[in-house]
Structure formats: C-alpha cells, structure tokens
Amino acid sequence: MNQQRVVHPIEEESFRRLRARVDTSYLAPLTRAVVERVVHSAADPAYVTDLVCDEPTLAAAHGALHTGAPVVADVEMVAAGITRRTAVCRLKEAVSGPGLTRSAHAARLAYEQVGPGAIWVIGCAPTALEELLLLDAAPALVIGLPVGFVGAVESKAALRESGLPSVSNISEKGGSAVAAAALNALLYHPYDPPHHQLAKENA
C-alpha cells in the first residue's frame, strides 16, 4: 500500500501547469493534496475556493485509510476511479421503493456490510449522502461531492452542518471523477505510521 507511486510525465507536467496558474502553496499538506488532485481531475481551478477541507480531519482519515478502513462508493463510476483500494459499492443489488431511491438503499446495504469507521466517497447521488446522514454510521470520513441541480447543494450543506468528518464543496459541481480524486489524494500521500514517527523522534 505504501509502495512508491510512479508518476507519469504527463501528470507531472499537468501539475506543474496547475501550480503555475493557481497558488496552492499556502495550504496545509493534505488539504493541498486533495485540492490539487480535485482541480487536476476536473481541470477547474475554481475548486480551490469551492472545496471545504479541514487538515486535522484529513490527517485522521489519512491514518484510518492507510491502516485498513473500508472504502464505500455510491456508484460504480466512483469505485472504478479509486486506485490502490477496492471500494464497496452495493448499487447493483439495491432497489428503489416509496420514498427510497436505489442510491439510498445502496447506502443502507453498504453500511450493513462495513459498519462504523468507513470512508464514504459520494460523487453522484445526493440521496445517498442524505441517507448516510440518517444512518448514524460514525464514518472516518465522508467525501461528499455529489453533482447536480437538485439536492446536491442542500445535501452537502447538511453534511457540513452534521459535524461529521468530511470533504465537501459549496456549489452544484462535483461528480464521480472529483470524488474519486479526493480519495486518491489521500491514498497517494505518503503515510508514516505512528510507531515509525516515534522511532525517528527517539533516534
């Protein structure tokens, strides 16, 4: 999991151009990693001010992710975009019903499978995010970046108001690619286990 990632020259050049256009140097390390990868995935510098991140929250989620916390995706497109980790996605088995969308049912099924402490990556369905907020799921992190003109802004605002550890954005923008990119940023960022840090301090 912590094997050094080989970065393609095209990606290196893309990030060089991104940083030449937008100053992200003032951001804390994990926040910068998430913001830059989201901007890169969408070629949209406006995400620099649209995203809502918190460095201590990201640090805790980064540790949880690298010590085995399960990852849940709301749709297959999000799951397909996540590298280095298999994500749980139960949408294929979910059904809709009165007052319940397939995406909301899939969130219920996923929670029954993974329990508390998971990292949830929602990039498509506001109703999946709304259902998650009702589940008392005690997540390690919710990457809530659903896209759309109906329910997306409201569900992301509700996520922020819930007090759950989260990454979200203010506008209608979002989508599978940017949600997966936010998770990948945490996967790619180097992880130094606490016992390694302690050993360095005592050396």
Rank of each mutant, 00 (worst) to 15 (best):
N2P: 11
N2G: 15
R5G: 06
V6D: 13
V7N: 06
H8S: 10
P9A: 07
I10D: 12
R17W: 09
R21L: 06
D23V: 01
T24M: 02
Y26P: 04
P29R: 12
P29I: 09
T31Q: 07
V34K: 02
V34D: 01
V35W: 01
E36Y: 00
R37G: 01
H40Y: 10
A42E: 12
A43T: 12
P45A: 03
A46R: 15
Y47C: 02
L51R: 02
V52Q: 13
T57Y: 05
T57H: 08
L58P: 00
A59P: 05
A60V: 07
A61P: 06
A64F: 00
T67E: 13
A69K: 09
V72S: 04
E76K: 11
M77I: 11
V78H: 01
A79H: 03
A80Q: 12
I82L: 14
I82K: 09
I82P: 08
R84T: 08
R85V: 08
R90K: 11
L91V: 05
L91R: 04
K92T: 14
P98A: 14
G99E: 09
L100W: 05
L100K: 05
T101F: 08
T101Y: 12
R102Q: 11
A104V: 04
H105D: 14
A106D: 12
A106K: 02
A106H: 03
A107M: 15
A107Y: 00
R108C: 08
L109R: 01
A110C: 08
A110R: 00
Q113Y: 02
G115K: 08
G115M: 13
G117H: 12
A118D: 05
V121D: 00
G123Y: 01
C124K: 11
P126W: 02
P126T: 07
A128T: 03
L129G: 00
L132M: 07
L134Y: 04
L134S: 13
L135Y: 04
A137Q: 00
A138S: 13
A138D: 15
L141A: 06
P146L: 09
V147Y: 03
F149T: 09
K156Q: 11
A158H: 09
E161M: 12
P165V: 05
N169M: 09
N169K: 12
I170F: 13
E172Q: 15
E172D: 13
G174P: 01
G175D: 08
A177F: 01
V178K: 04
A179H: 07
A179F: 03
N184R: 02
H189T: 12
P193S: 04
P193G: 07
H195I: 08
H196C: 10
K200I: 14
A203K: 11
